[in-house]
Design a protein around this nucleic acid. Structure first.
Length: 727
RNA sequence: GCGCGGUUAGCUCAGUUGGUAGAGCAACCCGUUUACACCGGGAAGGUCGUAGGUUCGAGUCCUACACCGCGCACCA
């Protein structure tokens, strides 16, 4: 009898991986309901729903790898393990991707009928979904596909609607006519998280405004300014009183201005006097609210000046500024211009367009009450952050949280189930489409055309996917154990899940948050299509095998730290898979007469020592696995396999087997160490270990499945080595 | 302005409760002794950002500073 012929050639990942994945998937063991001990403790990870607008990138590769490591480990430890996969319609993100596609085709979304546009994007999404799912399989993800969810699934939408209703009933959601961050290019409002601050150097204009000199960086907004504001304690302006009327010459002729005293004014800045534009500035809006001042729109949704601008009406603000300054100069109203004014401009995180604040009627969630509950739980330690400093970052954000605008003026998303009064503007939540008249003024109502911020639905993901409130899955698997995702979306997603999860279910959605860093290119630069430095994970798995990709991504990659992905790194670990392969060949060739369930052998002294050494190693790494230190475990196993098992134990055994001295001890050690190491390595490099496992004539295995015979089965359900049976 | 990271071998990074520094990759020398050249053996390479402090002893704790990265912030 000889060893498996495959072993005589080098390990071939391409011929192995798809076949092995199919074996796993067909076995049904990804599903915790099938055969696994139903009384075992559950372990749950909800996979961050993948944006269905492209293909898998290196970051996804890391997500799949880390989560699969945790899941395979826990499954081997005998937990009733659920890893639930999902896809995200990713509202605005997807719409932007699709708009770019339209642009290339010479089309624009503003010319497409909304319903048609929705259908088109849906098609696009479904095509991408297929790719993503097959790519996840390539990565070896052992998730339960039978429980897969999509954010637009009717049952998910139903739960999202119920939450919206509950928030409304509890007075935590309101329709507010407030200033929002508006992107003139994308024609939608945003929450504060979608806005980026950009430092710029611009001109700062000192303009004569009657007896005052006011400072501004945006002269094009000043047409309607009829309130001049100063600090009540400013001695320079003590002769002026609150509400005093002053007649003065302004851009387009004489106006009457009103003096307002407000403490928000910084006496040190500029001249200590400013005029306000409440429609287009947050701070000005607040001042206007405090003093109940008029607000007037100057700039339209496209960034063009309205009729109030007189001769400048219809011009885009970008072009108008210079012309307006020119006119002001002619009228002698420009005192001076500071050309080196450094300030921060708010821009759209997608296109970089300057955000134009606008007053709009939108849905807002009152965040303070939700944040307070979340803070309590976090402070109590109900959620552990890995790495720890994310806890500080989170609490800092929660402590300073502002209300969340969840309305988006885009078609791709979950429609907001509400009616808007065409007369008084009130909004009414209406899940059953029953409201026909405005509940406050009796006016006509129309369906809200907006959609939810995509994070409002994904923020409910953990309990929505498990079928809150009635399904057994919810009862069994909620709260989940680990939320593993990118540190980048700590506010966008993680913190909102905590708040919404707590609010709806009364319990935190997950007990641990594991945050990984960015995957960067070999030089440590962020990958981007424009830079052309995007590394496709699938080209690496194709070349070096998925196992090499996985372990290469994990070793030395501490949580929260970004990772520079160099091809050599992956190549190096490709050799490791082959090393295991070849070591296996040696072991099997030399232990053909070894029967692990029949012979009672005693180790000789040095083998005894080696046996103890590996046991000690397994104890150590088991502890480290429980502490999420996969980067150490992978390295230790790599090192032990190569430099102890291969270099020392195999070399030593050659002599013993040839000389026939303590050969039985050597054989037992070879087989025991090999099978033990395969088990321990399996979460990291599942394909090659499973393939080899199938070739080893081992009989006395200890799998984690109830109800199937004790014959040898898949490595993925084997018991973790030296695991204690203390259930 | 406030906050959070980081600064360790040429590169990418580890370094758990303080006890004269580690890995992978790259580079160098030697070697085809049969599991493996997708290999083996060997040697080389760091005053652990700077300056203080605590300590018998600090990469590891404290303070200040510098530089890099990131987040938060309505100064017109």
């Amino acid at each position: 009898m000889s060893v498996n012929e495959k072993l005589l050639k080098p390990y071939n990942s391409k011929e192995t991986e798809d076949r092995i994945y199919k074996l796993w998937e067909d076995s049904g063991f990804f599903n915790p309901d099938k055969n696994i001990d139903q009384n075992a403790k559950p372990f749950t990870i909800i996979m961050p729903p993948t944006n269905a607008n492209g293909s898998l990138h290196a970051g996804h590769g890391l997500v799949m790898t880390i989560e699969d490591i945790m899941v395979r480990y826990k499954r081997m430890r005998g937990f009733k393990t659920l890893w639930l996969p999902g896809l995200d319609h990713a509202g605005f993100e997807t719409q932007v991707v699709y708009e770019k596609k339209l642009e290339k085709e010479g089309r624009t979304r503003f010319e497409i009928e909304p319903k048609k546009l929705y259908e088109e994007i849906l098609d696009f999404t479904l095509t991408n979904s297929k790719n993503i799912k097959s790519q996840a399989r390539k990565m070896g993800a052992s998730c339960d596909w039978s429980r897969e969810k999509f954010t637009l699934d009717p049952d998910i939408v139903k739960i999202v609607y119920q939450t919206f209703k509950k928030l409304s009933d509890d007075n935590l959601v309101y329709r507010g006519n407030r200033i929002v961050s508006w992107c003139p290019k994308h024609q939608t409002s945003f929450s504060d998280l979608e806005i980026l601050d950009e430092e710029r150097t611009d001109n700062f204009y000192y303009l004569k405004y009657g007896p005052f000199v006011i400072g501004t960086a945006r002269p094009e907004t000043k047409f309607g300014d009829k309130y001049v504001v100063m600090h009540p304690d400013d001695k320079r302006y003590k002769e002026y009183t609150n509400d005093q009327k002053i007649k003065l010459e302004w851009i387009n002729g004489p106006i009457e201005a009103t003096v307002i005293k407000d403490k928000a004014i910084d006496m040190e800045f500029g001249t200590g006097v400013m005029t306000i534009t409440p429609w287009h500035d947050n701070a000005d809006f607040d001042i206007a609210e405090r003093h109940k001042l008029d607000k007037e729109q100057i700039i339209d949704e496209n960034g063009k000046l309205l009729p109030i601008a007189g001769e400048f009406a219809g011009q885009h603000i970008k072009k108008a500024r210079a012309l307006i300054v020119e006119k002001l100069q002619k009228k002698g109203l420009v005192e001076k211009i500071d050309e080196k004014y450094k300030h921060v401009v708010r821009t759209c995180y997608k296109c970089g367009t300057t955000i134009e604040p606008q007053i709009k009627s939108q849905w807002f969630i009152k965040m303070k009450p939700l944040a307070e509950k979340a803070l309590e739980k976090i402070e109590d330690g109900e959620i552990t952050y890995i790495p720890e400093h994310y806890k500080k970052i989170t609490t800092h954000w929660l402590n300073n949280i502002i209300d969340w605008n969840i309305s988006r003026q885009i078609v791709w998303g979950i429609p907001i189930p509400a009616k808007i009064c065409t007369k008084c503007g009130s909004g009414m939540v209406d899940l059953e489409n029953k409201i026909k008249k405005c509940t406050s003024c009796g006016g006509e109502v129309m369906q809200d055309k907006d959609t939810f911020d995509t994070w409002f639905s994904s923020g409910q993901w953990p309990f929505a996917t498990l079928g809150y409130p009635d399904k057994n899955d919810f009862k069994t698997f909620y709260p989940t154990d680990v939320m593993e995702t990118a540190g980048e979306i700590i506010f966008f997603w993680v913190s909102r899940m905590i708040m919404l999860g707590l609010y709806v279910t009364g319990e935190v959605p997950f007990k641990n948050v594991y945050l990984h860093g960015l995957v960067l290119d070999a030089k440590g630069l962020k990958m981007s299509k424009s830079k052309g430095n995007v590394i496709d994970p699938l080209s690496l798995t194709e070349k070096y095998g998925t196992d090499a990709f996985r372990i290469g991504l994990v070793i030395g990659n501490t949580p929260g730290t970004s990772l520079a992905l160099a091809e050599e790194r992956i190549r190096g670990y490709g050799k490791f898979a082959n090393k295991i392969w070849n070591a296996t060949r040696f072991v099997l060739e030399n232990t053909q007469d070894y029967e692990d369930d029949k012979i009672e052998i005693k180790y000789d002294e040095e083998d005894e020592k080696s046996d103890a050494e590996l046991k000690k190693l397994i104890t150590e790494i088991t502890k480290e696995m429980d502490n999420y230190k996969f980067y150490i475990v992978a390295e230790k196993l790599y090192h032990y396999f190569w430099h102890t098992f291969a270099d020392i134990i195999i070399e030593r055994s050659k002599k013993k087997i040839i000389e026939g001295k303590n050969a039985e001890s050597a054989k037992m050690l070879l087989r025991t160490q090999l099978t033990t190491l395969l088990k321990a390595l399996h979460p990291f490099i599942p394909f090659v270990t499973e393939e080899i496992w199938g070739m080893i004539p081992t009989r006395n295995t200890t799998h984690n499945v109830v109800g199937i015979s004790d014959r040898k089965n898949l490595l993925m359900i084997e018991k973790w080595p030296y695991d204690r049976v203390d259930k």
